[in-house]
């Protein structure tokens, strides 16, 4: 049995893994926020509520319709994405000619409504969601014990993030999206339906949040408030990384998750605030964010 800096390796790697899992959620959520912000110019405060909806839809699919985890992993993001499309068409699209801040206030109000409705229906105690049988158990890696499901969460979110990066940076659709982010009027003049692109982008960003929610459901209990506090940390992540770069969002998300995990090992009292402290330092040193362009 060897020790690193007086910390048993089991504890150290256990916390690092936990940090990596939190980091996956930070990455998925901040990626969605960044994509939505790029095109819609609003900060989607509803993001945390939509992450929670992803977990709840997965739970409902299982308990009301008997649809298993693997199908829910696809279906829940699609369903929540469709609600996002409806929200964008009915409400958010009316605000594009106004200051960005109104978008923030509107989506904040929507988050309150969604969270309140779920709290009314399901209470705040949280509902259990079983780990799918294929992923129960774990592996002994020698230096640590890796529960299979946790390994899967990290891998799945990494794949989702990289796939998103690939679509945006390497495909024709992604090129339209990047062009519309730069100059929507000009892209519209080339005959591309920009409003539809905007709607689909919002739906996609929301679906990413719901995907993260389904991944989270077996780890944390399914709870109406699960997204509320998380989204504020994700805001800090977004400020630290800046919203200019897709890969930047992914790296910042995973990196900050790891730092948080390390803090939990060496200075547990500081783990809840470490990301905010890093945000303060970044604001002092490089206000535009690590990967951001100056605004």
């Amino acid at each position: 049995m060897f020790e690193l800096l007086g910390i048993p390796p089991q504890a150290l790697f256990g916390q690092l893994l936990l940090g990596l899992i939190n980091g996956s959620f930070y990455a998925l959520l901040s990626l969605g926020l960044a994509i939505i912000f790029g095109l819609l110019n609003i900060i989607n405060f509803t993001h945390g509520a939509q992450y929670m909806m992803g977990a709840f839809v997965a739970w409902m699919l299982l308990n009301y319709l008997g649809i298993n985890y693997w199908a829910a992993l696809i279906l829940a993001p699609v369903i929540v994405g469709i609600t996002g499309v409806i929200i964008e068409r009915l409400l958010i699209s009316r605000l594009y000619h106004l200051d960005h801040l109104y978008g923030l206030l509107l989506t904040f109000g929507l988050a309150l409504i969604i969270q309140g409705l779920f709290r009314n229906e399901y209470g705040i105690s949280g509902l259990p969601y079983q780990i799918p049988s294929q992923l129960s158990g774990g592996m002994n890696l020698g230096f640590m014990f890796l529960p299979n499901y946790r390994g899967w969460v990290v891998a799945a979110s990494l794949v989702a993030c990289l796939a998103t990066w690939f679509v945006i940076e390497k495909t024709r659709l992604g090129a339209y999206l990047r062009a519309a982010t730069e100059n929507p009027t000009l892209v519209g003049a080339f005959g591309i339906n920009v409003p539809r692109l905007i709607t689909l982008t919002y739906g996609f960003g929301v679906a990413l949040a719901a995907f993260a929610g389904v991944l989270a459901a077996p780890i944390y209990s399914v709870n109406p408030n699960m997204g509320a506090d998380l989204i504020i940390v994700v805001f800090a992540v977004v400020v630290i990384g800046g919203m200019g770069s897709i890969l930047g969002s992914i790296v910042t998300g995973f990196g900050l998750g790891l730092i948080e995990g390390l803090t939990r090992v060496f200075y547990p009292e500081g783990s809840a605030v470490v990301i905010f402290v890093i945000m303060a330092i970044v604001l002092l040193v490089k206000p535009a964010g690590l990967f951001g362009r100056t605004v």
Binding site: L101, L104, V273, F276, A280, P287, V295
Partner: peptide, 28 residues
């Protein structure tokens, strides 16, 4: 002093994040 280094939407997010830091501090 920290928050005014960013504008608009970032300003809102920064102030919210700092407030959450005060909240976590108050919990502990």
């Amino acid at each position: 002093a920290l928050a005014i280094r960013r504008q608009g939407i970032y300003f809102a997010m920064v102030t919210l994040a700092f407030a959450q830091m005060v909240y976590f501090f108050s919990v502990q």
